[in-house]
Write a protein that binds this DNA or RNA. Structure first.
Length: 113
DNA sequence: AAGTTGACTTAAA
DNA sequence: ATTTAAGCCAACT
């Protein structure tokens, strides 16, 4: 049974992508946030994967600080080694296990309307 | 159209 | 530390 939200319309998908990029662009330097937070803020709480897909495949993601987006456990994106160095260059501290120190750098996105 | 995949998340082993 | 499992959903095969 599909009691979940259902598929996005083309407009919704477009808006979602815009929102994602918009939110990511607001991540302060030296901070990080998670896919889940971004998705929730876009109004699609269960679309963390879609956020990842957007940042990965959408041209233009390179124009926003998408390197400041990590997963919920502070892991950096697979196959993107540079991300870690970019974060280090901003002063983001990594723990011994190779994860970002979330307690220190996690930025909880909030938008004041 | 049905199955697989993935820049996800949480929990568990 | 790593892996599995299940839940999740759009895109891809």
């Amino acid at each position: 049974m599909k009691d979940y939200v259902g598929n996005m319309s083309a407009e919704q998908a477009r808006a979602f992508k815009d929102d994602v990029l918009n939110i990511v662009s607001q991540i302060p330097r030296g901070r990080v946030t998670t896919y889940g937070h971004i998705a929730a803020l876009c109004g699609w709480p269960d679309h963390a994967r879609m956020v990842g897909r957007t940042l990965h495949y959408t041209p233009g993601a390179e124009k926003v600080p998408c390197h400041r987006v990590v997963n919920a456990v502070g892991r950096t994106a697979p196959g993107w080694g540079a991300q870690r160095e970019m974060l280090l260059a901003e002063g983001v501290n990594f723990k011994a296990n190779g994860r970002v120190d979330m307690a220190q750098h996690l930025w909880e996105p909030k938008i004041d309307l």
